[in-house]
């Protein structure tokens, strides 16, 4: 058991964990942030996607000892009281069915928009290739990402 200092959603935290404990379980069981989901444990389904240093990573296979930067989870995606454009678009398009995979989808899409504010269908397919949706909300996910991109650009005053 070792002590790890992490920055999660802007907060500095310290946790005791074994070095091999994946970030996912630190977030869920130690920090009690349950928005990040467990789906497979082998980086195949994307339900556990979070940002480390702004990059989408599968937290189920990232040992806590290897976390190298600030972590953002779905709970920290909104800016204060303002929802992230993707969250607004997800609600507007009524994307979720069961909802379990959606945090991972949104986190993958958010990483895409942060580097590509006008993604094509192909860009979206690439960025979300690692995220399963068992309910089949894929059609609406694509549309919502496009809508979010327009919000995103409008927010920045260039859309």
């Amino acid at each position: 058991m070792s002590r790890y200092k992490l920055q999660i959603n802007g907060d500095d935290v310290e946790v005791d964990a074994t070095p091999d404990m994946p970030l996912l379980w630190v977030i869920r069981d130690k920090l009690k942030l349950s928005g990040t989901k467990f789906g497979c444990g082998i980086a195949q389904c994307g339900a556990c996607t979070v940002h480390v240093d702004g990059v989408a990573v599968r937290s189920c296979v990232l040992p806590v000892s290897a976390v190298s930067g600030p972590v953002t989870t779905i709970e920290g995606l909104a800016d204060g009281n303002d929802l992230h454009p993707l969250q607004t678009a997800w609600i507007e398009h009524d994307v979720p069915q069961c909802g379990y995979c959606q945090a991972g989808q949104i986190m993958s899409a958010a990483a895409l928009l942060s580097t590509n504010s006008q993604p094509s269908d192909n860009d979206i397919d690439q960025a979300l290739a690692g995220n399963y949706c068992r309910c089949g909300t894929n059609v609406r996910i694509r549309r919502a990402v496009h809508t979010a991109a327009t919000f995103y650009n409008a927010d920045k005053g260039n859309g």
Partner: peptide, 10 residues
């Protein structure tokens, strides 16, 4: 869906 907000925010 009535739970969209809580789902989208985790």
């Amino acid at each position: 869906s009535v739970d969209n907000l809580v789902i989208a925010t985790g």
